[in-house]
């Protein structure tokens, strides 16, 4: 269980998060949604100690700011939004970095296994810098996966923190990656993802926190959060939640004529 209480972050004097409460349970995909500048990424950065915050973040009851770096690294992995690499490392070398931080004594074949999972089998020898943005994003995901490969470790559930994990992916790979994350959660791991795409969120999230102006408007299951009024309030435009004829999964269409 990850629990963030009364998180406040100011960047250059401007309050970005104003007392956010957020929690995520292992076994679920928890997404953070909201308009640009609502504080989604800042919340993720606070929970991963990249931004200095006031408030408290606990992982299974332990204050994460008191846990040593190597212990945290064994329990949670963090996928950044975009990553540039300083030197001409190969894909294998990048993914292997995750392995060295892992608590598991795994073979290097794990690297190929992870690449296979993100749809990049055979990319080991390629130079990271020469890949497309979407491929780079999936290499980083493979690195993060090798770091916390088993969803449950000796010390409890392992966690994936992801900042827009599918932002540069095409629709096929978006579904592939989201299914992978859902499977990780199903196996007992915790998944926390900042998401832009409300439809993917509707399809894969078990729990959604919707942010606006540095506050959580609501956190709960998709049925409670993905409502016309809440989404319209958060995003400042009229939206209507619909269900596709074939199933009961909601989908969202913006109503262009009525931007408030």
């Amino acid at each position: 269980m990850l629990d963030a209480r009364d998180i406040r972050v100011s960047l250059a004097g401007t309050p970005v998060l104003q007392g956010v409460h957020f929690r995520a349970r292992p076994g679920q995909v928890t997404t953070i949604v909201g308009p640009n500048g609502s504080g989604k990424t800042t919340l993720l950065r606070a929970m991963t100690q990249e931004a200095s915050y006031s408030g408290e973040v606990t992982l299974d009851g332990e204050d994460i700011s008191r846990l040593p770096g190597w212990q945290l690294a064994a329990r949670r992995a963090v996928l950044p939004q975009a990553s540039r690499i300083a030197f001409p490392f190969t894909v294998f070398e990048i993914v292997r970095l995750g392995l060295t931080a892992s608590a598991e004594a795994a073979q290097e074949s794990r690297v190929s296994e992870a690449l296979d999972r993100v749809g990049l089998a055979g990319f080991e020898g390629r130079f990271y810098q020469e890949l497309s943005g979407g491929e780079q994003q999936r290499v980083q995901l493979a690195r993060v996966l090798t770091q916390v490969w088993e969803p449950i470790g000796a010390e409890g559930a392992r966690w994936l923190f992801l900042d827009e994990p599918v932002s540069s992916l095409d629709i096929g790979h978006q579904l592939e990656v989201m299914s992978l994350l859902a499977a990780y959660a199903q196996a007992g791991g915790g998944v926390i993802a900042v998401m832009h795409d409300l439809n993917l969120t509707a399809m894969y999230a078990d729990d959604i926190a919707i942010l606006a102006d540095g506050r959580v408007l609501r956190q709960g299951p998709p049925s409670a959060v993905l409502t016309d009024s809440l989404l319209s309030e958060a995003y400042g435009c009229a939206v209507r939640v619909n269900a596709a004829p074939a199933g009961d999964v909601p989908f969202i269409l913006p109503h262009m004529a009525s931007i408030s």
């Binding site: 991963t48 100690q49 770096g69 690294a73 963090v78 990553s83 300083a86 070398e93 060295t100 931080a101």
Partner: peptide, 20 residues
Amino acid sequence: ARSLNALALGEAPAAHLGIP
């Protein structure tokens, strides 16, 4: 050596890999 390799990803990702 290992820390410098991780640092190629950036400082925050290196920290998340448990590098002091």
